[in-house]
């Protein structure tokens, strides 16, 4: 009886909160610690960075405007954002185009939107998110879907992802080391465990050779790694991202790394850096699982060709 009563009470609470949540107008506190009031269901949505477009695509909707990186929209989104207007490079959004678009809602990275918040909020609302950790991703998906009136889908996406992650983790024995690098010129920057992508690797049982960020510097997600350090740590798998097109800068140390020698050094697409959207994180999970444990996980087929991992190519 008590169990039935508890169940009924939770059920009523759940339903009422669901009803309350889906009702407009609603207020969301974004990562600026600012309450943002959304009066109506947003019709046109702009995405500064690929996260917003990712959420929209996951909900089966079209985003109206999207940022580019190196002149291109993220490859992993496939055709879902082709009709969106380009807002210019993610770190220098073209405000003229954005205000011309006049979206009801702009979802963007806090570092790139907060400085222009006032301008953006002249014509619509802004939800600005910090996107580094797994928790950032879960939180942002929850808030974004709530703003779009799709609370239950948001919950389902988060729960689904965590369930998949756990299930995959159970199938691994964790005997692999890896590192995720962003190459700036000839200097590789290695990501710490706080970033979502290495966190996925760690949850899957791999060791991120760069480990945790140093004491008291929890806000930074990456730091330069010398070739010497890379040689010393010698990971089994290397995942490298480079902003510009073209081969990676050559250095004799690369050829001595076992990941390069055994063909397990991969060039990955930009959704590894911006992996916080629901589609991106699933793709990263599937692909990383395959790259780390090829005998256990098959190559994922849902990733567009342009966004799939390729072997790292070096100059001459």
């Amino acid at each position: 009886m008590r169990n039935v009563l508890n169940f009924l009470l939770s059920f009523i609470a759940l339903c009422s909160s669901a009803v309350l949540a889906q009702g407009y107008p609603l207020t969301i506190i974004d990562d600026r610690d600012k309450p943002v009031t959304i009066a109506q269901p947003p019709q046109t949505v702009a995405s500064v960075s690929s996260f917003g477009a990712d959420v929209m695509a996951a909900l089966g909707r079209q985003v109206a405007g999207i940022s580019t990186l190196n002149g291109q929209r993220s490859a992993y989104l496939g055709d879902s954002a082709t009709k969106a207007v380009s807002l210019g490079e993610v770190h220098q959004t073209n405000l003229e185009i954005l205000t011309q678009l006049a979206p009801d809602l702009t979802i963007g990275l806090r570092t790139y939107t907060e400085p222009f918040a006032r301008k953006i909020e002249e014509t619509g609302t802004l939800l600005a998110f910090d996107l580094t950790t797994l928790d950032d991703s879960l939180n942002a998906v929850t808030l974004a879907t709530r703003a779009l009136g799709a609370d239950s889908q948001g919950e389902a996406m988060n729960k689904g992802f965590l369930d998949e992650l756990e299930a995959a983790a159970k199938q691994t024995d964790g005997n692999v080391s890896a590192v995720f690098l962003w190459h700036w010129g000839n200097v590789p920057y290695a990501y710490y465990n706080n970033h979502l992508t290495p966190q996925i690797m760690v949850r899957l049982g791999a060791t991120n050779i760069h480990g945790e960020p140093p004491q008291g510097m929890a806000s930074i997600d990456s730091a330069a790694m010398t070739m010497e350090a890379l040689l010393r740590l010698n990971p089994d798998v290397i995942l490298s991202f480079k902003g510009e097109a073209g081969p990676f800068v050559q250095h004799p140390a690369w050829q001595r790394l076992k990941a390069v020698q055994s063909g397990r050094a991969w060039r990955v697409a930009d959704h590894y850096v911006m992996s916080h959207g629901p589609i991106a994180r699933r793709m990263v999970l599937h692909e990383v699982a395959h790259l780390l444990y090829p005998s256990v996980f098959p190559e994922p087929s849902e990733i567009p060709l342009a966004a799939r991992a390729k072997p790292m190519d070096f100059e001459r």
């Binding site: 990186l69 490079e89 010129g185 480079k242 902003g243 510009e244």
Partner: peptide, 10 residues
């Protein structure tokens, strides 16, 4: 229209 931070570093 590309990522140029590496060059600033140089």
């Amino acid at each position: 229209n590309i990522e140029v931070n590496g060059i600033y570093y140089w």
